[in-house]
Amino acid sequence: MTNISAPGLGSEPGRHRVGARFTSPLGDERAGAWADKLWSAARAADEYAALDVVAGALDAGLDAETVLLEVIGAVQHKVGIEWAANRMSVADEHAATAISDRAVAALPVQRPHAFVGKVTVACVDKEWHALPARLLAETLRLRGWRVGYLGAQVPTAHLISQVHRTGADAVCLSAALSTRLPVAHAAITAVQAVGTPVMVGGLAFGADGRYARLLGADAWAPEARAAADRLSAGSLPRPRPPHQALDDLPHLADQEYTMVSQSSRSLVRETFRRLEEHLPAMAAYDDDQRERTAEDIAHIVDFLAAALYVDDPGLFTDFLTWTGDILTARGVPARSLLPGLNLLEEQLRDFPRTRRLLDAGRTALAARP
């Protein structure tokens, strides 16, 4: 097995790579050409060339929002695709992301004569993929909002303190990984409890926003431009009165999510131990391979817990099939995931919802070509 953690795509724009060139969803071929140049700079880890691209695109007449979303955001989206296909290493991905972040900082933002409103933008606690949230924050600044951008991994208590201090009209929360849904739910509920509406975005909430609705967010947007448009269209709905997680998710009453999440470390350790007994080849693993295998098991347990939280087998099966693609691209058979699922079920035989999720996972993997 190999490491399966993913770089975040979050709320980054749906820009696509066709053939040898980027194409813009707005049909602006100029943006596509500049995205190609920025991609070359990112692949070369050349920060100076990247800054020259940003300056050149602005000088050529592209507005700052187009450069932000249709050039920089497009390149970062491509970074995620290339990493998943094993055409970029983790180090390459980190270097390219750092260049994207530096390119964002190079964009000019003029102070408006009057702000249209105040908004706080943050990643939920434990979410380290910060660039999607920053793309939104900068888009809102360009449109005249006073933005409090808090970055990655913001503990809910600190988020609430910031909302109290600034009197934000709305809070925008970003999460890229579905494993962050439980803490996202806590953050949504806490912000709403102080009377502030919450908009969420990022891949964690589903491509269609299904988990945003399930967790009671006041609004959802698929990407930065749509989020900015929604805020510009008018105030978000008044948040619901304070409520508990069980009000939104009554299935949590069976305690399966709580038991699995609280025992996750012991589940990972025991599954790893049993894998060593079942797979003699692991005796030849070096320290790096053993560490990555443990990380893979931990990811499986984390996504299993997240699927229990929202009671959606699709969350777990989508993760497993995506992971199978990642492993296949790295020369590891997708079926290598099956022994771990079987060993987890042995330990969780008293949890019916959990067993159904594991069965769905095995079925999804068996259906792969």
Rank of each mutant, 00 (worst) to 15 (best):
T2N: 09
N3V: 05
I4R: 05
L9E: 06
S11K: 00
S11E: 08
P13A: 08
H16S: 11
D28Q: 09
R30Q: 11
G32L: 08
A33S: 12
W34I: 01
L38A: 02
A41Y: 07
A45S: 15
E47G: 13
A49E: 10
E65N: 06
L68K: 10
L69F: 12
E70M: 09
V79S: 02
E93V: 14
H94K: 02
A95K: 01
A98R: 08
A98P: 00
I99P: 01
A114G: 01
F115S: 10
V116A: 12
R134N: 11
R143M: 11
R143K: 12
R146H: 15
G148H: 14
G148F: 10
L150Y: 11
L150P: 00
V154E: 00
Q162T: 13
V163Y: 03
S174I: 01
A176Y: 11
L177D: 13
L181C: 04
P182T: 07
P182W: 06
T189K: 07
Q192K: 08
A193W: 04
A193N: 07
V198G: 05
M199F: 08
G202M: 15
A212H: 05
A212L: 10
L214V: 10
A217R: 02
A226D: 11
A228Y: 03
R230N: 02
S232H: 08
S232Q: 15
S232W: 01
G234K: 11
L236Q: 01
R238H: 10
P239F: 09
R240D: 12
P242F: 14
P242V: 07
L246N: 06
L252F: 06
A253D: 11
Y257K: 01
S261C: 04
S266W: 14
L279R: 04
D302C: 04
A307T: 10
D318P: 00
T321Q: 12
D325V: 13
R330I: 09
G331S: 06
R353P: 00
R356W: 01
L357C: 08
D359L: 11
A360P: 02
G361D: 11
